[in-house]
């Protein structure tokens, strides 16, 4: 495992390359695109665990943090969707350079799936994990969670108010610029370039909130398989806001498909 900064020296991005334990004809390369906001924290451990599992086999793995998130440079409030999309392109280039494999796979989680699906890079297999396709509904969900959180007597001993910030919105621990929130809201299938050769929908047990939009986008995809998990992710439940999402059985299922394909 090799952590290093990539992209520009002014705005370095934190990336981790996991080289495969087994080299040979069956080598693969996969880019892990994380979600954003609190979903990122909840899934961080799962992504590291998956990367370790895959690289213990024949898979090159690259995972990274978008600008203004995790251990990358910048502040979330200065981030925008175009920057994050470009981060995915740069991360894909890092994976290709590290692995020497030009036909890469992508596994992207939650809003990371919407970001990755709107980037015009050549992808062999695209694994979408509880993808967010309906940006408006996604923003409504985190706005509601934020309001519920402010009124959560288990969290706060005094009444909290939803503070107005000039040009920014605070949602579940993170500051988003108004432009970023508008761009997330406008995320829809029409903005996505679905050109991978094969798609996999990785579903936690309760990922049904985005069904309508999901059908509209997935109906246009010929080669789609679903990998179903048996553990709920509870993305929209306040009591799970700070609980790590670690569906080991589903991670193992995904690992098997990635390594065997």
């Amino acid at each position: 495992m090799n952590p290093y900064y990539f992209s520009s020296s002014e705005t370095p991005l934190y990336g981790v390359y996991h080289s495969p334990a087994q080299m040979g004809a069956n080598e693969k390369a996969i880019l892990l695109c994380p979600p954003v906001g609190q979903d990122y924290i909840r899934t961080h451990r799962a992504m590291k665990f998956l990367a370790d599992q895959l690289s213990a086999g024949s898979c090159h793995v690259f995972r990274f943090d978008y600008f203004g998130t995790g251990d990358s440079s910048g502040d979330m409030q200065d981030a925008d969707i175009t920057v994050w999309q470009n981060n995915i392109r740069e991360a894909a280039t890092e994976l290709i350079d590290n692995s020497g494999i030009t036909e890469i796979d992508i596994l992207a989680v939650r809003f990371g799936a919407a970001l990755a699906a709107s980037v015009d890079i050549s992808v062999k297999r695209f694994f979408m994990w509880d993808p967010v396709f309906d940006g408006r509904q996604y923003v409504e969900e985190i706005e509601k969670l934020h309001t519920d959180m402010l009124h959560d007597n288990d969290r706060f001993s005094t009444q909290q108010t939803h503070d107005k910030n000039d040009g920014h919105v605070e949602l579940l621990g993170y500051m988003y610029s108004n432009n970023l929130i508008d761009a997330i809201r406008n995320t829809c299938p029409e903005n996505m370039t679905l050109t991978a050769r094969q798609y996999y929908l990785v579903d936690s047990a309760d990922s049904g909130s985005d069904q309508l939009m999901r059908h509209s986008i997935l109906n246009g995809i010929n080669k789609l398989e679903t990998i179903n998990g048996d553990m709920p992710a509870s993305w929209s439940e306040l009591q799970n806001l700070e609980i790590a999402y670690l569906p080991f059985r589903l991670i193992n299922q995904v690992k098997e498909v990635i390594l065997q394909g």
Partner: peptide, 16 residues
């Protein structure tokens, strides 16, 4: 009234 952080950040349900 209180949830301990250590519990909040554990996976818990299927092993972690």
């Amino acid at each position: 009234p209180f949830r301990i952080l250590a519990g909040l950040f554990s996976g818990g349900k299927t092993g972690s």
